[in-house]
Design a protein around this nucleic acid. Sequence first.
DNA 1: TGTACATCAGTGAACGCGCGTTCACTGATGTAC
DNA 2: TGTACATCAGTGAACGCGCGTTCACTGATGTAC
Lengths: 206, 206
Amino acid sequence: MPDYDGAMQRSYHHGNLRPALVEAAVELARTKGPEGVVLREVARRTGVSHNAAYRHFTDREQLLAEVAFWAMGRLEQAMEERLATVRTREPAARARQRLREVGRAYVEFALAEPGLFEVAFSAQLHSDDEAGGPYGLLNRVLDELVDVGVLAARRRPGAEVACWAGVHGFAMLHLQGPLRGVTAADRERSLQQMLDLLELALVQPA
Amino acid sequence: MPDYDGAMQRSYHHGNLRPALVEAAVELARTKGPEGVVLREVARRTGVSHNAAYRHFTDREQLLAEVAFWAMGRLEQAMEERLATVRTREPAARARQRLREVGRAYVEFALAEPGLFEVAFSAQLHSDDEAGGPYGLLNRVLDELVDVGVLAARRRPGAEVACWAGVHGFAMLHLQGPLRGVTAADRERSLQQMLDLLELALVQPA
DNA sequence: TGTACATCAGTGAACGCGCGTTCACTGATGTAC
DNA sequence: TGTACATCAGTGAACGCGCGTTCACTGATGTAC
């Protein structure tokens, strides 16, 4: 029985192997998490021999890092998209709303794409580039809160870590932790309350 | 060469195998995390054949769950010990201080015992027993804040999740996440600021 | 007090697993002349 | 335009790994009589 490989005409040289491998790896990460990104399976799905990947990546770790980088980009994108939906005009209210949306986007991404989320945080991203990525975005929104007079400048330092910790922990507890079993409705209520709490804390004068 | 096994006189029946296996497993978890709890290695360290464990546990998963339960107990103990050091007498200040100590104990335990911390949260603990454990402790301390008039009753629900998320996320970001490389001093500063923020948020009237 | 026997708690060998990685190789491609 | 050759991008077979788990087994223990 001949092996019709869809419409793909396969030749010895793939021609576009590296991105194809990353794509397959992303798909595995999405459905099975970091452990699921198995070199041989990635190759299988790309229709290539199991060691062809070594022409493009030094080892599995490097491929996984590529996926992590991609996932980080997706997270950032999700946050940006959320920010773009904020319609509030009044500056103070707008800045507050933007902080909420950033937090909400983070949690929702983690819950919607647990595999990618885990990979994004499992691999060593050597980007100490604090200006970009999800972290940079959060920092920017917090700066806006200061500019607009909502967040006291003396409370600005450290605020990003506290906010980040809050949403990250929230996501982890509901994803893999003891709050795994909580219903979506309860989770949503908790999220609202946590965002309220953070906002309340930051908004204090003095 | 005869095999002197220390002072231990080994007999066919170990006599105390189950707890000995758990102890070895705990040690592995402590130094290598969940992945390190390998049945064969646990048996090796206990000086017993690699499948003797099956007399006491149905499978690896069950042994790991035992370790997780034990680790949870340790975390709770660490929190209790911290609480016991609070000397403040004035009720409101005391309750606030107790909340801080609970949070600090959580983070410090996670950073001091990363392996145990990870195991505690990786295994499925079917205890929906919200009254006990670290979670129960946190709830109790938050209730104290209400009793003492510091935390408005209407802000009490959900507060435990927000607090928990904060310390959990803080620990994760510094343990395995992007804040891994932060110095101990910076980390301590961030922790102070986060605890301040949480306290500030909870203390608000209305 | 002695003995037969059920039961419990260990043993050692074996299986099957799928992986990451390396090796020597081959087919395809591009470029210099 | 044709040809030689270096280089690139794949292939298939093999290795070694250590694991969890199962099997048929044996040594030790306790209990009924």
